[in-house]
Amino acid sequence: MTGTAPVAATPGRGPAAGTTARPPGPAAGPGGPLAELRAARMVWRREMLHFLRDPVRTAVSLLQPMVFLFILGVGLSRMYAQAGTGAGVGGYLVFLFPGVLVMAVQAPAVSVGASIVWDRQSGFLREMLVAPVRRSTLLLAKCLGGATVATCTGLVVLACCGLVGIPYRPDLVLLLLVQSGLTALVMTSIAALVACTIRRLQTFNTVLTVLMTPVLFLSGAMFPVSAMPAWMAPAALANPLTYAVDAMRRTIGARLPQGQAEALAQPVAWGGWHPTVAVEIGLVAGFCVAALALSVRRFARIE
């Protein structure tokens, strides 16, 4: 079966003698910001296609945060209630909720890094690298795609907020969604930074597993920074996730009835000063920009 399909809109086909040797077919565009945007959209779309075509992976990656929230969280909150901390049964669950949200966006965000390593190992990365597109465009689009996927996953956890006693207020849900989006982007950019440095997928997975557990524990997701001893607290204060978790927790706390869940919700403090939620979000965003800039630089050096 030989392909004699019509070569559409291609005058002068075949190397006829005397004609110019310009091959038929549309020429590549001249580049420019619009072309970069279009390439970025495609890279982003590819992440979404992979996400939508693999619902099993999403379901499995949601399993862990759900276990933390509804098994560990419920158990611990009842323990606290029996110990008489005054937080009530729902108190710890509300406290834990932002942490679980962070966990939910972590897995898909990290898997973007893994997919960079995988693309490199499988060869697909070369297809992108030889294209007439800026490398920064490719990496940023990839990170945005990963953050979008992660935010969509986080949305599933967010939808459970009523079960732990957080009201379904549109403004609250929207704020939390934006914040988890930003958190997702931070973790995606960290994963991308690691991915640009590591060639082997197994190494990458090990490194991130080892890296992400202490980062999560030292973010105030499960126990407050105020409860940390003096040697531990500085590590938490240097961790961008701490501010992401704290900002979400205070966003929730501000919209709860007075007195509920306040026992555990000691906001992060620098000395005696509590940075405002806006400052915290600014910090996270700043860290995100720095990590992205660094990974763009690393990405540009590949090969």
Binding site: G3, G25, A27, M42, A131
Partner: peptide, 29 residues
């Protein structure tokens, strides 16, 4: 192929026909 077309900023209107053409050439129509 569409991914490639976007990376190389091919004129959008030409893409479907071009996909047909190149797939035909390699017998994957």
């Amino acid at each position: 192929l569409r991914f490639h077309a976007d990376l190389y900023a091919l004129p959008r209107a030409a893409v479907p026909a071009r996909v047909d053409a190149v797939l035909g050439l390699v017998g994957l129509g």
